[in-house]
Amino acid sequence: MRRAPLLTLTCSKESLQGTWKKAYQDHRRKVQEARPLVDSHAQPTPSHLHLKLGKLKLEEGRLSVITRDNRLLLEKVSGILRPQAQTTSRDPTRRRN
């Protein structure tokens, strides 16, 4: 690792230069001792992305259409079977010509 250049100041007072030098050394020490800090946790997912209300609404509409179609189909089938039951209950002794 490269060494940092020495701090040269054009200050006449030695005490001020010593204070700055100490502050710079403290800074360099803190930089050397610094530990890497990485946040590897996943961000919390917002609740509206889990619930998906639009998809639930579409599914509910789809199921209501299926239920309505099933009911109509059942009514048609029962309407078809009802007259057959009436025709089979005719008098078997009567002959067709």
Rank of each mutant, 00 (worst) to 15 (best):
H50D: 01
A23L: 11
S12G: 12
A34V: 01
R62F: 12
T45Y: 07
A23F: 08
R90E: 00
T19I: 03
G79M: 07
L73N: 03
A34G: 07
T45V: 14
E59R: 12
A85E: 12
T67I: 07
K30A: 15
G79D: 12
S89E: 02
L37T: 09
K57R: 06
E59D: 10
S89C: 01
Q86G: 00
E33N: 13
S15Y: 07
T93D: 07
G54M: 00
R94I: 10
R95A: 15
P92Y: 01
A4W: 12
R29C: 06
P5F: 10
G79I: 05
Q32W: 14
S12W: 09
R82Y: 11
T45N: 09
L6A: 15
D26L: 15
A4P: 08
S89R: 06
P44W: 01
H27N: 09
R82I: 02
D69K: 02
T93C: 00
Q43W: 07
P44V: 05
R94K: 08
T45H: 05
G61D: 14
R35L: 06
L72I: 05
R68P: 00
G61L: 14
N70D: 06
V31I: 13
T93M: 06
L74M: 11
T88R: 10
G54F: 00
L81F: 09
D91W: 01
T87M: 02
K57F: 03
L6D: 15
V38D: 13
R96K: 06
S89V: 00
T93E: 08
T8H: 13
A42Y: 06
Q25A: 15
L73K: 09
Q43I: 03
R71T: 11
Q86S: 04
A42M: 08
Q84A: 09
L81C: 13
T93F: 05
R94L: 10
N97Y: 09
P36C: 04
R35N: 01
G18N: 09
N70H: 05
L81W: 11
K22E: 10
R3T: 04
D91Y: 03
S15G: 03
T19H: 07
K57A: 08
D39Y: 11
T93W: 01
E75G: 08
Q43K: 11
L53G: 00
R95H: 12
L16Y: 13
K76I: 05
R96M: 10
V77L: 15
L16G: 07
H48Y: 14
R68E: 03
T87H: 02
H41I: 02
Y24V: 04
K21E: 14
Y24T: 04
K22R: 10
L81N: 11
E59N: 05
L63M: 13
L7T: 11
R29K: 15
S64G: 01
Q32N: 14
M1Q: 14
A34C: 09
S12P: 02
T87V: 04
K55H: 07
T45P: 02
R90G: 02
K57V: 02
L9P: 03
R96T: 09
V77Y: 10
R71Y: 14
N97H: 11
L9M: 12
Q25S: 14
S64F: 02
T10L: 10
L73V: 02
R82D: 12
G18I: 03
V77Q: 07
K21S: 11
P92N: 05
L73C: 05
R2Q: 08
S40Y: 11
L63E: 04
E59V: 05
T8I: 11
E33V: 01
A42C: 02
E60C: 09
N97D: 07
N97G: 06
E59A: 12
